Simulated assay, not measured.
Amino acid sequence: MAMAFDAEDDRSDEALLALYGRGDAGAARVLTLRLTPLAFRVAARMLGDKAEAEDVAQEAMLRLWRQAPNWQGGQARVTTWLYRVAVNLATDRLRKRRGLPLDEAPEPVETAPGAVGRMIEAERAAALDAALMALPERQREAVILRHLEGLSNPEIAEIMGVGVEAVESLTARGKRGLTAALAGRRAELGYDDD
């Protein structure tokens, strides 16, 4: 019972990390439940290997725990820091797979958008979130699992307890609903030059 409550804890990641840095084991439990899936997801997408992704997620979380007592709030979001660590760990594993010495491998290209780009991304994300919330629950679930989490239709069918055809139908109807909800906002969201 406590785990379900912990997963819904409304304290920020930064506040929880500061609490853990002062010895609060409950804060570590909440952060583990909240953040490990993020690190795992990015590693799994990069590596294509769940076992390796689990190792990367575990190492990223261990580094976060070591960082906790020295965490400087306001410099970076915990999730941003964790994603970066997970990406770097996964990149290191990919380089090792290719047999390149780490000091000879090229550095990852910086693809982070500037301030204006981040503002546009935030507006687009808010518009998408609002449009998703307007969808019927099952359509919203299918669209999120397929297009935001990248799961396959058979995986989604198993999660939702429906057939693959039902997933395809739910996803298609959800996408049509999103298209209709966002249709008049293309220019506002910066898509006028696409």
Results as ranks from 00 to 15, higher is better:
1 M>K: 13
2 A>M: 13
4 A>S: 15
4 A>K: 14
5 F>T: 11
10 D>I: 13
11 R>N: 08
12 S>P: 07
13 D>V: 04
16 L>Q: 05
16 L>M: 13
17 L>G: 03
30 V>Y: 03
31 L>G: 04
33 L>R: 09
33 L>S: 00
34 R>Q: 08
35 L>R: 02
35 L>C: 05
38 L>Y: 00
39 A>W: 02
40 F>M: 08
40 F>V: 06
41 R>C: 06
42 V>I: 15
43 A>Q: 06
44 A>W: 02
44 A>G: 07
44 A>S: 10
45 R>W: 06
46 M>F: 07
47 L>G: 08
49 D>T: 04
50 K>E: 15
50 K>I: 04
51 A>R: 14
52 E>D: 14
55 D>W: 07
55 D>S: 13
55 D>A: 10
55 D>I: 12
57 A>K: 06
57 A>T: 09
60 A>E: 04
60 A>G: 08
60 A>H: 08
61 M>I: 15
63 R>W: 04
65 W>P: 01
66 R>D: 12
67 Q>F: 14
69 P>K: 11
71 W>C: 04
71 W>F: 15
72 Q>L: 05
73 G>Y: 03
73 G>P: 10
73 G>W: 01
76 A>C: 09
77 R>C: 03
77 R>K: 13
78 V>E: 01
78 V>N: 02
78 V>P: 01
82 L>P: 04
84 R>E: 12
84 R>A: 15
85 V>Y: 02
86 A>G: 08
91 T>A: 10
92 D>H: 13
93 R>Y: 07
93 R>T: 06
93 R>Q: 15
94 L>N: 04
94 L>E: 03
95 R>K: 12
97 R>D: 12
97 R>T: 08
100 L>H: 09
101 P>I: 07
103 D>G: 02
107 E>Q: 14
109 V>T: 15
112 A>L: 12
112 A>S: 14
112 A>N: 06
112 A>Y: 03
114 G>D: 15
119 M>W: 01
120 I>T: 13
120 I>H: 02
121 E>T: 09
122 A>D: 05
123 E>P: 01
123 E>F: 07
123 E>L: 14
125 A>H: 07
127 A>E: 02
128 L>K: 02
129 D>T: 09
132 L>H: 00
132 L>C: 04
135 L>M: 05
137 E>V: 06
138 R>P: 00
138 R>I: 01
139 Q>K: 01
140 R>E: 02
141 E>D: 12
143 V>S: 00
144 I>G: 00
146 R>N: 03
146 R>Q: 07
146 R>Y: 00
147 H>F: 13
147 H>M: 09
147 H>R: 15
152 S>I: 00
152 S>P: 00
153 N>I: 11
153 N>F: 12
160 M>W: 00
161 G>R: 05
161 G>P: 05
161 G>E: 04
162 V>W: 01
162 V>D: 00
163 G>S: 15
165 E>V: 12
169 S>C: 03
171 T>A: 11
172 A>I: 00
173 R>S: 02
173 R>H: 06
174 G>D: 03
175 K>H: 06
176 R>L: 10
177 G>A: 02
178 L>P: 02
178 L>F: 03
179 T>C: 05
181 A>N: 03
181 A>E: 12
182 L>N: 08
182 L>T: 10
183 A>G: 09
187 A>K: 14
188 E>M: 05
189 L>I: 12
189 L>Q: 05
194 D>G: 03
